[in-house]
Design a binder for these strands. Structure first.
Length: 575
RNA sequence: GUCCUUGUAGUUCAAUGGAUAGAACAGUCCCGUCCUAAGGGAUAGAUGCAGGUUCGAUUCCUGCCAAGGACACCA
């Protein structure tokens, strides 16, 4: 790649000047006018050599110019002593050719070649609503899965769901309590799953409220919880089986719209016994008994960690224990080189403790476990809580987003089927982009008006720009403009100066596990394309440069398609 | 109290230790015989506070302030 090549010639130049360089830094200048690549070596070594940075930069420049490769047009010294490289027309022309050659492979790298990476994300709980937090985890996890895939790994997608525990008992109590005749009919069918799941969500909310407000109901629900575990009550078993199926079915419908296909579904009910066995086997070693419970004193291994209970004094395995079971199961089943878990930051400290415990039992897993945490999705009114019922569910949000798109395309000359597809694809894009445009660390303040705004910095803006490019390609085909690299415009567009950077951006997104770098890049790229589009008549048979410009548009379209794929967003042909 | 996140234009977000801190929305003002105006152009506007390291700090270190989270039997 060109980057390595430039670093090499800088290294050679420095050697000729008798400077031993360690780690040459080559970056893109903030302003595109200042060149395509820039190095700070003159500033970094001037002090050590006792010279002025600019003077040293000039010397290095002369040395570089003795043997400049054809990809570089010129070298300049600027500012406090930066050495800037300007890539040549030939480089950009070849770059366009390369993109069209690589097609769907454009942007891939080999950082993870022949590795296997398991990514766990989404983690909704049966019997509870699919809320915005799940949407967030899904968008991020799916994007990371695809970025990892583009980095050469085999990706295994996993989902982990809490199908047992107090939340299920609360929901079942709610279902029994709210079941009038009409809802008894509900229990006879699992269709439509979405609506039924929504009703179960309401039952959960009512049950959870009652649990906190009424002592006798609390006792009843605890009783139900026990019966769920030992499967001793037929009526409860029936409701349980029905509710589990309905909610899982509803989740599957959402995954389909979101574009996720899981390879594995892990359930807490299955992980509990596995984890419990492991924990009990390690009492005395890793775990200790304390006040009747089985705990892990993580602070003994790392002062920043804390003690957590793994099995209660009543002998019930907690989430920590199930997580141990899950982690070990993942490694035993798939033996991934890297196991990534995506959750909200509130799980951060807890996960460190669990991973420390697992590491003590299986030291070889330690360096392979990665926890990616993201901020919380919150309303302006505060934290979202499905317990208090003030939720905007993930499903309702998706529906609203798609409805807005439907209104916008209503007047377009498209078939009803096309409009429906566009509503789905663009609605999902609006939502995913609003999640993936920010770095993972900070919270996302959810503003409905803004999330459905399709102007400017948004998913639909990216799709719209790609669609415009697609129209040009279609039109050029109709006009019979053939791709030949005969006449190349002498000027270099901002679009070209952005396109070749795509693989670097993908690699960086993987190394930092931050999808937003791709989102930011695509927005800049789209902006560059739209400027080009506004100022240039591209499809023009009498223009000798038309074939190259169409090729450039195709290269742009391909880059957008691949980039949007990495965000889990589809590129429509029309909208 | 201890630990983990996060503090950047009016708002929502960017910025692999670099050059004049970038966008978008909202504001003001332009662009419609032309490939989709869900577009383009112009204009105004910001690094929580105080130190330190560095040729250079939004970025790294220390302290403070503010918001959110985790700290024994919820998940």
């Amino acid at each position: 790649m060109i980057k390595e090549k430039i670093i090499q010639i800088i290294d050679d130049a420095l050697k000729n000047l008798g400077i031993k360089a360690e780690g040459i830094i080559l970056e893109h200048p903030a302003d595109i006018e200042m060149g395509d690549y820039s190095t700070n070596v003159a500033m970094a070594y001037a002090k050590q050599l006792g010279t002025n940075p600019r003077e040293l930069a000039e010397k290095i420049k002369i040395e570089l110019e003795k043997n400049l490769p054809k990809e570089i047009e010129k070298v300049e010294v600027a500012g406090a002593g930066f050495i800037n490289f300007y890539l040549s027309r030939e480089f950009f022309t070849n770059s366009t050719k390369e993109i069209l050659k690589q097609k769907e492979n454009w942007g891939k790298n080999e950082i993870l070649s022949s590795k296997k990476v398991m990514v766990e994300y989404t983690q909704p709980n049966p019997f509870k609503p699919f809320h915005i937090g799940h949407l967030m985890s899904n968008a991020i996890g799916e994007s990371i899965s695809r970025i990892v895939e583009f980095s050469g790994a085999k990706t295994v997608r996993a989902n982990y769901q809490g199908d047992v525990g107090p939340h299920v008992a609360k929901a079942i109590y709610g279902i029994m309590w709210l079941s009038d005749n009409a809802s008894n009919e509900k229990l006879q069918t699992t269709d439509p799953a979405g609506e039924l799941a929504e009703w179960i969500g309401e039952c959960y909310t009512k049950g959870a409220q009652a649990y906190e407000e009424n002592e006798s109901i609390k006792i009843q629900i605890d009783e139900i919880n026990k019966k769920i575990y030992d499967k001793s009550d037929n009526e409860i078993n029936k409701i349980y089986d029905w509710g589990r199926e309905v909610t899982l079915c509803a989740f599957e419908e959402i995954y389909q719209i979101l574009g996720t296909k899981f390879n594995y579904y892990f359930f807490e009910s299955e992980m509990a016994p596995i984890g419990e066995k492991i924990v009990r086997e390690n009492i005395g070693g890793v775990f200790t008994e304390s006040e009747g419970a089985i705990v892990f004193h993580a602070e003994n291994y790392d002062p920043k960690l804390h003690t957590r209970v793994f099995i209660t004094s009543l002998g019930i395995p907690l989430y920590e224990t199930k997580e141990v079971g899950l982690t070990v199961t993942k490694f035993e089943k798939e033996n991934p080189d890297i196991s990534i878990i995506t959750t909200a930051i509130e799980q951060g400290e807890y996960m460190k403790v669990v991973q420390k415990a697992v590491s003590l039992i299986h030291p070889d897993y330690e360096s392979r476990m990665k926890h990616v945490t993201h901020g919380m999705m919150r309303l302006t009114s505060g934290k979202m809580s499905s317990r208090k019922g003030n939720v905007v569910t993930g499903e309702s949000l998706l529906r609203d987003s798609m409805d807005v798109v439907r209104e916008k395309v209503a007047s377009r000359d498209l078939s009803a089927e096309e409009k429906d597809t566009i509503a789905k694809v663009v609605g999902v894009a609006a939502l995913k982009y609003s999640i993936l445009r920010s770095s993972l660390g900070s919270d996302i303040v959810y503003d409905f008006e803004k999330s459905i705004s399709f102007e400017g910095d948004s998913g639909p803006y990216l799709q719209y720009t790609a669609v415009r490019a697609n129209s040009i390609i279609k039109k050029s085909e109709a006009e019979g403009i053939h791709l030949v690299y005969k006449n190349i415009p002498t000027d270099i567009t901002i679009l070209e100066k952005n396109l070749y950077k795509f693989p670097e951006i993908v690699a960086r997104s993987y190394l930092l596990l931050e999808p937003h770098h791709i989102a930011t890049y695509l927005t800049e790229l789209s902006s560059a394309f739209n400027t080009f589009y506004a100022n240039t008549q591209i499809v023009n048979k009498s223009d000798p440069y038309a074939p190259y410009r169409v090729a450039l548009v195709e290269a742009f379209h391909q880059t957008m398609k691949n980039g949007l794929y990495l965000l889990g967003i589809k590129t429509p042909d029309k909208m």
